[in-house]
């Protein structure tokens, strides 16, 4: 009798059950690949949606705060009308996105807006990116608004125009202030992408679910998926905490 067999025989029954469950859910038919591939999809969607969200959010934040700051003192004319229009569009965007569940937005994107496209990853990136952009916009806008107006006046009094003042003086300070909040938004987004299965995208959560449906055993695959999310989230939370400490220390 070899030692391995001995060891197996010596295992308590629950441990043996756990081992066979593990083999059934992850090893047989290479089922672990559902998890691996799902993780890659989740990472892809989260990464590109975050990028889109930040670009879109920054744009909307700048439109909104420019409107609030400049519109009251602008002379009537084409620039003022244009600003009013893009501001109105931004406000509709913020209201609709933040007023409806993200899962419904995802389904509308897939089944209505992009019904002719079959690129599920791209559709998910667009849906989550547009969703995230609304929240990022409010984060960045609050960052811009939190900068003392004296900073703005100091820039303008040196001769910088509005855009230069924003670029060289306001945005760098605002961005530094909201970096932790933006990082948190990334974590929220990562977890939110777990609803991608609603449109048949095989992300991490759906990967676990597929295994469950094949093996009729829910415990292992779902707990494994939960554990992976948790580890990733804890890792990034730790990064955010370190970032916050760094920023506090460099607080000048």
């Amino acid at each position: 009798m070899n030692y391995l067999l001995l060891a197996t025989l010596a295992m308590p029954q629950w441990l043996q059950k756990l081992k066979s469950d593990f083999i059934l859910n992850f090893v047989d038919d290479d089922r672990y690949m559902y998890i691996v591939k799902g993780l890659i999809v989740t990472a892809e969607v989260t990464f590109f949606a975050t990028l889109l969200g930040i670009v879109l959010g920054a744009l909307v934040a700048i439109i909104r705060s420019t409107h609030d700051k400049l519109a009251p003192t602008m002379r009537m004319g084409a620039p003022k009308v244009a600003l009013k229009i893009v501001n109105a569009i931004s406000q509709v965007y913020l209201t609709v996105i933040r007023g409806t569940p993200v899962v419904v937005q995802l389904m509308i994107a897939y089944f209505i807006i992009f019904v002719t496209s079959n690129n599920k990853v791209l559709i998910a990136v667009l849906a989550f990116g547009f969703n995230s952009g609304a929240y990022v916009a409010e984060i960045i806008r609050s960052g811009i608004m939190s900068i003392d107006n004296g900073q703005f006046e100091a820039g303008r009094s040196l001769g910088f125009n509005y855009a230069q003042t924003m670029i060289y003086i306001i945005i760098p300070q605002a961005f530094k202030n909201v970096l932790p909040a933006l990082a948190n938004e990334f974590i929220v987004l990562l977890k939110e992408t777990s609803i991608s299965g609603y449109v048949g995208l095989q992300d991490l959560a759906r990967g676990g679910d597929v295994i469950r449906s094949r093996t009729y055993s829910a415990f292992m695959p779902l707990l494994a998926v939960a554990a992976i999310y948790l580890i990733i989230v804890m890792f990034f939370s730790k990064l955010v905490t370190m970032l916050e400490r760094r920023l506090r220390n460099s607080e000048r």
Binding site: Q151, E153, A154, R156, L158, G159, F160, P172, K176, R252
Partner: peptide
């Protein structure tokens, strides 16, 4: 006005140095 302001310096009560 941006060009004219280059020729008119301003000093504020609260300094308004750029902290970054």
């Amino acid at each position: 006005i941006n060009v004219l302001r280059q020729k008119m310096g301003m000093v504020f009560q609260h300094f308004n140095l750029f902290p970054h």
